[in-house]
Amino acid sequence: MSELLRVEHLKKYFPTPRGTVHAVDDITFTIEKGKTMGLVGESGCGKSTLGRTVIHLQDSTDGKIFLDGKDITKVDKNELKAVREKMQIIFQDPYSSLNPRMTLRDTIKEPLELSGRFNKEQLEDETTRLMDLVGIEKRFHYSYPHELDGGRRQRVGIARAIALHPEFVVCDEPVSALDVSIQAQILNLLMDLQDQEQLTYIFVTHDLSVVRHISDTICVMYLGQMVETCPTDELFKNPLHPYTKALLSAIPSVDIHNRSKRIQLKGEITSAIDPKPGCRFAQRCPYAKEDCYRDLTLTEVRPGHFVSCAYVKEINNL
């Protein structure tokens, strides 16, 4: 499999009056073409920021982004246009990501219009094709977003994102604002589209069952740092980082005879404003020692399984 996206040491800092927020701090990963990487972590850990930085909705502070082997970290205006046609985003909240003054058709038509690739007639045909593709009924083509339910709105958001056949799509919690019954529909749509269009996804979510269902690899984040990354099955079977273990133990189980033992984390989340060096999880980690407050490196514990913990071997008896 060929690699589509490679991110190296990506950083995104936000200057604020109270100090610099290290929203994304030294993240490195690669995604293969046609695969899905799940990006999980609790609220505010920088997963959405990472997604947005990768597709150039925000400028990165440091690090490099490669698409198809080409460095796209710093691009000029024309290149940015090309990059954005290849990399798209599906937003979390289908209620606020659609312009309430535009009909669904106009919303989906807009990226096609802006690409300048279509004449008037093709524009209409292509718009209709997209609306059929994501399953919006004809009677809703000229409706406004507020007239629809969340699932249909999210379909519009998806159609807008895939309109120009991008290679890579960031799904920023696309189902977390939807009813559970609708979630499955949208997930299936996303997976069908992935097959049809050879799409590559970053799937940002905090819902572990969703991410298990859809992703090929998973990347766990904690306060801007990457904690652990490996193939999905491996992560659920054999989590190595203490934070990942705690996270997975929080998944509710329906089997009363085999309740997983919940690991309760103590202490508060440290602030991402001007953080101390080293592992940011150390303050809540039951295994933390002094070394944890020094530099943090990602180690490949097993082939394809990276963990950023100084004591990963000791903790797991490896």
Partner: peptide
Amino acid sequence: GSEYIEAAQSINCSTAR
């Protein structure tokens, strides 16, 4: 601050548009 403004940016909308 709405997401649809961000969405418009992501599909190459110019500032004027």
